[in-house]
Design a protein around this nucleic acid. Sequence first.
DNA 1: AACACCGCGTTTTTT
DNA 2: ACGCGGTGTT
Length: 742
Amino acid sequence: MQAFKLYTAAKNLQSKIMDITSIIAPLNDAQRAAVTAPSQAMLVLAGAGSGKTRVLVHRIVWQIQVNAVSPQSILAVTFTNKAASEMRGRIENLLDNSANAMWIGTFHGIAHRLLRRHAPEARLPKDFQVLDSNDQQRLIKRLLADLKIDEKELPAKEIQWFINEQKDAGLRSKDLVNSDDKNTIRFLRIYREYELLCDRSGVVDFAELLLRIYELLRDDEHLRRQYQQRFSQIHVDEFQDTNHIQYAWLTLLSPNRDNMFVVGDDDQAIYGWRGAKIENIYKFQSEYPQHKIVKLEQNYRSTGAILNVANKIITNNKGRMGKSLWTQTADGEKITVYNAYNEVDEAKYVVERIHNWVSAGNKRADVAILYRSNAQSRQFEEQLMLTKTPYRVYGGLRFFDRAEIKNALAYLRLLANRNDDASFDRVVNTPTRGIGLKTLDAIRELAHEQKISLWAAANSLIERQVLPNRAANALFNFVNLIEQLERKTINLTLGQKVHFTIEDSTLMAFYSQDKVEKSADKVDNLKELVNAANAFKRDNSEEDLSELTAFLSHAALESGELQADEFDDCVQLMTLHTAKGLEFRLVFLVGVEEGLFPSQQSVNNTGRLEEERRLCYVGITRAMEKLYITHAESRRLYGRETPASKSRFLRELPKEFLEEARPKSDVSRPITAKAPIFTTSKLPPEIKTDSNYQKGQRVHHATFGSGTISSIEGEGTKERALIKFRDDSRWLMTAYTELTVL
DNA sequence: AACACCGCGTTTTTT
DNA sequence: ACGCGGTGTT
């Protein structure tokens, strides 16, 4: 026995040595310093492409294999489910073992898990449900109607924003002092009513998950101690994106402040507008005096040219923590800047480059078109469609956000919890079953008066027989439908439950009676929901939950996970925000114009402008091999042709790494009001056979003012001139531009 | 209950 | 331009 023990110990030791090599060998000096640092307050400033996730993953494995930290003691928090599952996958890979025992998840996911475990202590019903922001808004709308508040005066959106902002700051309605301002008083009243309504319905919104768990840990010393002891190593990804309440609950979990390993990049903080506090990085340093900082500055992603340009632009921001990326890679190709006539020309140019790229044997999936706002995708989609190029636009409606899916889920939620007013409201008359506004008003009135749920109010109205016959029947049918459904499916599997729900609710029949083409998709989506339910497995941590409750929480918290087509070879179209964390060999940064990027709303505010600049930095650093930046002279915006000028960000880039794209010889004619319409002749008449302009001439333009022609090319309708105006040089089509020779 | 019309706003997004 | 939500019509 003794010998056996010794043998295994030796074997463990040997494998440990091998593991250590595999943990630290692939790291550079800075990364290794971070990974092997003793347990303490650690701040890793990780530049774009510097191996941030790698450091987190290796750090966790290091703690387990070298410092014998129990996997149960590991907490790792991210912002997206995608980041969490990637981290888990990579840890499992390196460990060659399951990481199930570790708590790796999003802030919301982990808060949710804790609340499930301690629902009674948090004064929540065991089967509480999670409201997504859509549900939240509907609930607020209903509340406003109940309170007889005109939505035109106080839009639900504003209320929602206010409530979430308070919760993110850790404030309950009772913590807010009543002010004299009439509007503030109203906001507070609605906030209070909203809290009551949520409690009564047994639902929590996203912000509530965080606030609730924060309060629980703050007020329950026993629980706090328990989790402080349990999570001996706390890891945080994208620390620059944490908000007040997230920081606060991290602090509760790490009282001695010697076990927090946070990774972030102040230069990539682009979510200030939704409450992220970049200051948390500074706060961390002042509140954790013993902290250690490691900067990861070697970039493994981009060429020298791309990195130089990125470094340069970000130096225009003040108050940075200071980081400068470098690479061993050669400079590579210069950044190509294309000055398009308009958004159509811009799209054509980009799609042409993509075709060249694909013709050279490269993959479409390695190409990304990045823009500031979603509306810009259209032109590119049109050109891609025209040339039959497969593409994928990110950021559309997600599976669990679709109306037909939300309807089905609302039925399921009502099955799980009759007090869920938001769900009752959603499906009581969907599909229509003759329950009209009058009946609904009566239900709401009674519910509001007696402070009971809509479900209870509906039943009360039926019992007391105060409704007109037709309405009473319709309402009874609905109530009966839910009760029957529950009885019928109580012992069936989750998949069968979902199946019978969409059948018996007549949702399936409703979408099947195909009136519009789109309803075929909806039928498919409903079927897909049954599939998803069949495939669904509870986490180990959710074993004492009903499968249905677990499934519904999953739908609210991980609504984006069900996305197909990931494996097709498609050009990727997305906003700059969506692109954060991703990389592509070939990147087109498009629409780089004043008013678009930076956006108009940001130009008068230094803080916002700097956030836009960080966004630009994020965009540039997505590119591995080659970056194109495009901007247009004129762009159709809100249905209006608007002149545009190149973005200040473009001017901030170092010229030595830029090259102007050669203008195309066969220029696309901009469609302007000035363009003559030919009805009789098929051939467009030559407007000018000989050029009216020449180099060096002074000309005047109505919008751009006076300038000098610095070059001319093309003939007739295709002639264009490069004119140097006061602020800017731009190519103009002489045939379609009103120019006065001075 | 289904459809037409009008007025309005219009960056970014995850959970 | 375009889509959404609210209002009015059939």
